[in-house]
């Protein structure tokens, strides 16, 4: 575990990007409450559960135009 801890500084930017992508997608979704292909709830679950792929899919096929 100690061995892993020393790499935390390297993991932080990765975590920031992943969480940022997820939060960005969620905020985008919740501010509009409109989606394509699936309903809002389903997309929210997909965004949170599937790291990276979830938000990416949301932005590609779930996002409703403003």
């Amino acid at each position: 575990m100690d061995a892993l801890r020393q790499y935390f500084p390297f993991l932080i930017p990765v975590a920031v990007l992943e969480v940022g992508l997820m939060v960005g997608a969620l905020v985008h979704l919740l501010r509009r409450m409109k989606t394509r292909n699936l309903n809002v709830g389903a997309w929210a679950v997909i965004i949170v559960v599937f790291e990276i792929i979830g938000p990416v899919l949301y932005f590609l096929i779930g996002r409703e135009e403003d």
């Binding site: 990007l17 992508l21 960005g24 985008h28 938000p55 932005f59 590609l60 996002r63």
Partner: peptide, 9 residues
């Protein structure tokens, strides 16, 4: 439309 942003991230 976040397409470029998605690729970058």
């Amino acid at each position: 439309t976040f397409k470029g942003v998605v690729v970058l991230v």
